[in-house]
Design a binder for these strands. Sequence first.
DNA 1: CTGTGCATGTAACATGTTACATGATTCA
DNA 2: TGAATCATGTAACATGTTACATGCACAG
Lengths: 185, 185
Amino acid sequence: MSDLKEARASKEKPLKHVLLAGIHCQPRSGYELTKWLQMAGQHCWSVEHSSVYPALRELETDGLIKSERLPGTRGPERSIYSMTVAGREKLTAWVANGSPRPAIKDEQILRVLCFDLLPRETALQQIREVRADHQVQLEFFLARQAELSEDQLGPLLVTRRGVLAEQAYIAWCDEVAEMIARRPA
Amino acid sequence: MSDLKEARASKEKPLKHVLLAGIHCQPRSGYELTKWLQMAGQHCWSVEHSSVYPALRELETDGLIKSERLPGTRGPERSIYSMTVAGREKLTAWVANGSPRPAIKDEQILRVLCFDLLPRETALQQIREVRADHQVQLEFFLARQAELSEDQLGPLLVTRRGVLAEQAYIAWCDEVAEMIARRPA
DNA sequence: CTGTGCATGTAACATGTTACATGATTCA
DNA sequence: TGAATCATGTAACATGTTACATGCACAG
């Protein structure tokens, strides 16, 4: 069954599975999970902390994760969540499913669509800034890649996706800049 | 000011700008705009028709677009929307702004993160299906690229982004497959 | 002793989807 | 004449963000 879109068997909200995946990798607090999704996982599922904490409580109520209060290394006490057996089973079933297509919201591409409305130099300036921003992201992923050892296969492959995605975005920015530079107007 | 995230000057909902961009390219009906966003614009801003029609009415109320009832070529009558002067000004101001980072929701990457939970062959099968799906998307973008002439710079660059993005995704799938194939377990 | 980062929480709001509805027109 | 596609619309629901709130602990 190559049902990449249909296999919506699990009625849970997607964020809960995302958090399960994060906790499976390594037990973490809500704060750490939020940071993880905003940095190393930006290209997977970026969220605000205000969605994370309620979702974690639901997961604990469902018996899919359990928490332990621990003193923070440099900060106040926090709840570290880890998987239960039921949680691991639930996650395994989810991982075996097909995914819906990646959902993307990227205003920048649509701005480029309308670059005929801008003076050439304004457009070039904008695309240079976008490129610089993605360059920063690329360097972050490259640094993370260098830190990871080959036996951490999952995190490494997630990071590789970040590297490849940012490289592709930068390559596109360069094409845009070149085409805009040589355009008639 | 390289404020790529801060420049949220316009308080309009983003979809309205997306639709303005689509109409700027070419006057279109709500139906056509929906199809456009679901096919050629999937990698920019995919939406359902139920969000499109209300947004169009708001844009018309705001005086940014105007509509004209025309008989459909093969189907019932529809409203074709086109830009007003105010609309073009609004769009130009928006295009000159900085964009927030692309927002991505991709469950598949997180499934790969947890591939240690699956038997090797199950994981390989899944990633092959994902690759095939993106291959179809790539071919769609390549076909569209071939149709577009070089003077349609905006649509061409949007299509190029589709091509580059899908190629990068496919390359990642290949890396994943290779790493999984050679993993110990 | 103050600012920064750690850490968690909630309520109001924004935005978009799913499902439900309707009806025209064309093609087999 | 029935299915497929064109074409539009709405209400209930799902999901996530913004803004508001609180407090600890460490470094300068």
